[in-house]
Design a protein around this nucleic acid. Sequence first.
DNA 1: TCTGGGGTCCTAGGACCC
DNA 2: TCTGGGGTCCTAGGACCC
Length: 418
Amino acid sequence: MFALVDAVAFYASAEKVFDPSIRKRPVVVLTNNDGCVCAVSPEARKLNVPKFEPYFKLRKFLEQHNVVVRSSNYELYADLSTRMMNVIGRFCDNQYIYSIDESFLQFTGFKSIIDDWHAYGQDIRLAVWRETKLPVGVGFGTTPTLSKAANHAAKKLEGYNGVAVIDDDYSANEILAKMEVTDVWGIGGRLGKKLNMMRIYTALDLKKQNPKYMRKQFSVVVERTIEELNGQVCISWDDVKQPKQEIFSTRSFGERVTDVHDLKSSLSTHCSIVGKKLREQSSMTKQLIIFAHSSPHEDNFYKRSFLYEFPVPTSDSRVLANAVNEVLPQLFHNGVRFYKAGIGAIELVSEQFMQADLFTPTLNNSKLMNSLDSINKVFGKGTIRLASEQQTKSWEMKRDFLSPRYTTRWSDIPKIQC
DNA sequence: TCTGGGGTCCTAGGACCC
DNA sequence: TCTGGGGTCCTAGGACCC
């Protein structure tokens, strides 16, 4: 049995934890640079506030309906996420954290212990609420995709009260019949349209399709999804956790960047981020994509992207930053108002199988990088960083509606007055 | 005044080789 | 009657997720 536990509108709920005055009000949270709406509290959902619409288009509407607007407070969300995950992890010995607010639990050998999954789900919800003041939904299913579907039912369908269980074909069909095909994990809007044309409208319709045939029509992803809906496990974290095949760090700027040094320092920061993520999964990269562009919504869109090949794979942030330095003169163009930049490590290889080059002295210093990671872990991120990362305010992200970092800054800790 | 997120994986199609 | 292969690598764009 699998369970998917996730928070209801996590970012919006996180904003409510330390600010009870907004708990009953509609709340939305914006993405980086206050660009789009990315979290909509249930109260705001009732007003039909769409997700991922640009904020400037919704601003008037949100004001009219007295909706609370907040910038993304990642420091707060990351901390609350950790707390929430710790509570959830107590309920199962096999937890897989899938995103900042979702974790899968895989129950093996629990059958003799747990006879009522509904009650167990309510126990989880109650514990998380009591200890973190975050509302969660719990879906149980015999495959990860079915637990996702159950989770959808738990939170979005009438009469489930936060917990739903799919433990046989009957309960699966009952829930899947009430779900749009695009509510199924892995089926997005585009696929949904094509499926509709084939008269596949509900999740149950999809479940009844022939997986092999659908693989031919679409892809292996659709095939696996259908098998999972039929109770056949295709996604598993049992075996060694799969390392990522590519790692990107990209960001749009708070203010347009026109200065080469600003562009360089932002890219250096991306090098640190990607380097750290590479080391975390014991990978090294052979190739690096380095890109920068102006706004795609502007006329004469400027975009440059380079593929840099390393003679020897690396996970050393400094080596990545050197690559950036090399291409920077070709990337930057005077007069362009840069809107976004980033790097991506592709062609990853495992540290273990790293092939050295007889003729190229390796610049990779993993001891140095490991010490850097350890120091930053203890003393906070950015304690030791590349000199070229030198922060300049101009490209930092815009967050006009930021709440306090209640749990990660001494000055922001809530005070209780007697 | 101007404003539009970030990350990962898959696949079709072109270029090239023998 | 008419007909011309098959594999690999690379890349841009598509699609999905939250």
